[in-house]
């Protein structure tokens, strides 16, 4: 149920997003998802991809500071209230969300929500108990 995510430290200045993505493109690595958190000074580029281990190696070798952590993927209907039920369960179970982001899954128009929890195992158990579907890495990333 856990989806590996890479985070890369970027300075918040024009053009800083390009080089790491260029590097991954040149290596033929395709992204499944991406999100960018930014402050006035710096940004954190978050990447989800199948070959995260190789991406990490390439980025680190090129001098970026990279961190790997686990996300939890929930897939919901692309309809009003799709997210609400999952949030209700998490709130009731007292599972804090550090941050989250969403993206469309290409095939069947469903929406994937990626959550960062301090306690991913606890959150997975709570969602599971409530019958909320989560996507395993092999489905989200392929293979």
């Amino acid at each position: 149920m856990k989806i590996p995510q890479l985070s890369v430290f970027l300075e918040n200045r024009p053009g800083s997003l390009l080089p790491p993505l260029q590097l991954l493109a040149e290596a033929g690595l395709n992204l499944a998802g991406l999100s960018l958190a930014d402050t006035a000074q710096f940004g954190i580029l978050r990447l989800v991809l199948k070959d995260w281990a190789r991406a990490r190696e390439l980025l680190e070798r090129a001098g970026w500071v990279v961190k790997r952590n686990d996300m939890v993927a929930i897939d919901v209907d692309d309809a009003p209230g799709g997210l609400v039920r999952a949030l209700e369960v998490l709130t009731a179970a007292g599972k804090d969300i550090e941050y989250m982001y969403a993206f469309y899954l290409r095939r069947d128009g469903r929406v994937v929500l990626l959550f960062r929890f301090d306690d991913p195992d606890g959150a997975i158990a709570a969602l599971d108990d409530a019958g909320i579907a989560m996507l395993p890495a092999r489905v989200l990333l392929g293979e």
Binding site: F9, Q41, I44, V65, V66, K67, Y99, R116
Partner: peptide, 18 residues
Amino acid sequence: EVTPEVFSDKVRALEALR
């Protein structure tokens, strides 16, 4: 300079470090 030891994927953690 940010080092791997102190880097976090959470904005809040990096702001707290700062």
